[in-house]
Amino acid sequence: MALEICNASVIYPAQAGRPPVEALSNINLHVDEHDFVVALGASGCGKSTLLNLIAGFLSPSSGKIVLDGSDVAGPGADRSVVFQKHALLPWLNVRDNVAFGLKLQGKGSAADAVAARFIALLGLSGFEKSPVYALSGGMQQRVGIARALTCDPKILLMDEPLGALDALTRERAQELILKIWKDTGKTVFLITHSVEEALFMGTKLIVMSPRPGRITYRFDLPFSRRFLDGVPARQVKASREFIELREEVLRIIFADEEQVA
């Protein structure tokens, strides 16, 4: 698996008296198999636009997106998306939500077994028949992740998947996602505006800044591997190296903000 974004730019045309927005400008990004790429940046710096390009919901104004040698021209089952919210189907129970992708692909016969596997993996066993609207926000996000995994995508795209969760649930969910990343060997592209989350989860970090949206810094990160090697999450996050990098990234982001403002 290899994802290549070459010189991609996105300009949203002017509308209703507002000038055109250069949401992304000359983005270059290379994602290897098993990478966990985290895009970090303030609201409006083009993170979702970048994810929509990879997902194939949006075509770039210029440049291109290449997945395993072929151009991305639209959405497809090799790229699953986990959204921040509103993406589950409230008329289906947990199991049918998880099996939804497979059923759409006509793999209904295998769907229940595969769904059961990912329901167990995400710790949702026993809730198969529950209506999704009755679940907590954290459990709803786990249903969304299980659903995205069932179709065995090459890359998992997550747009602020933990953004609506409370702090405690959020830390648990970060750990769960990392364990699943390790167990399934997936490639992940995750968006967040939490610096701590970005540093803890990614193997590669891209820091983005707005107007025009671009990648301003890139870091390689060691922290998620440490956690997966057995160091407790809080200990990883409290380490001197983690805190120093966190402060550095925060300085970068605040400096950006001041330039813009």
Binding site: G56, F57, P75, V81, F83, L104, C151
Partner: peptide
């Protein structure tokens, strides 16, 4: 979008 990304 979720449905389309499953190839619907």
């Amino acid at each position: 979008h979720a449905a389309y990304s499953f190839g619907a």
